[in-house]
Nucleic acid binder design. Structure first.
Lengths: 142, 142
DNA sequence: TGTTATTATTACGAATTAGTAATAATATGG
DNA sequence: CCATATTATTACTAATTCGTAATAATAACA
């Protein structure tokens, strides 16, 4: 077998390895990776619609519904119908959600940063460039 | 929020985007990503123990059991107890499994290669180097 | 040689993920 | 306006994933 999907294998390995580290970092925080990613997006953007969250977190709509339910149960976010288009919901972190996220983020940041710091600044930029390039190409093919 | 986990976010995005492409490529083949990865490892290595497969595919042991069950049901692989240590199973693809894998791989290869070909040879090597570096660092922290 | 520890694997059950259909609101084209 | 198409979201269900405990075989060593 021509092993020219080496890039794919290496990407999968690196990702799974990092994903494990993320899970480890989030263990005992009461939220999982998808929940964290959704909260992060909301924290950065201030507010997003469900559809925008789906496009950011890249999980299926039915999975996002589940994630939002969980976070809503924990009172970390609220959903508000948009007045001008009632099909749309605007999602916002609550004060509690924001506070909890900030606490979790601080530790998570240090932990993850200690991994990525194995790359120097230039290497990290190069990684961004390369990953964006294949991510974009891959998205284009959908 | 200091956005210095940009690398993490970009990696996640690129991965999920590629993962979608992989799923698309494997749709209608009757096997999913984990099943494909396990078969690929077996195809390349000839045979592996369950534990070796777990270390390759990087999923929990309980998940691997499920994957192996699925593939065994489809008669794509067989399990043989090792004589010298009966705790250990040696997993091998059947002739059917091998043939099916080759068929699937051929199409999958073209599809995935068309994505990674957006990188030139040098860029691809660089990507390998960078991903291995953070993958390794991340694994070390376990 | 008989505990005790370690390793490989499976069993079980709960949580999550995801595909598909349903619902509800809005847009569009006659 | 009305019928139809499109968009956003949820409901429902099946499949998968995963943590943890159980089992079974082997190793270690007093």
């Amino acid at each position: 077998m021509k092993n020219e999907l080496k890039s794919l294998i290496i990407l999968f390995k690196a990702y799974h390895s990092i994903e494990k580290a993320v899970k480890h970092s989030l263990a005992h925080t009461g939220i999982n990776v998808n929940e964290f990613t959704a909260m992060e997006a909301l924290y950065v953007k201030g507010s997003l619609t469900t559809q925008e969250l789906i496009d950011t977190v890249l999980i299926p709509n039915s999975s996002m519904t589940y994630v939002l339910e969980r976070l809503n149960e924990k009172a970390y976010l609220v959903k508000n119908k948009k007045e001008s288009d009632k099909r749309i919901q605007i999602i916002v972190l609550t004060a509690l959600g924001t506070r909890v996220f900030e606490e979790i983020y601080e530790k998570h940041f240090s932990y993850m940063r200690s991994i990525f710091d194995v790359l120097d600044k230039e290497e990290e930029q190069q990684l961004h460039y390369l990953l964006k390039k294949i991510g974009k190409k891959s998205g284009d093919k959908e």
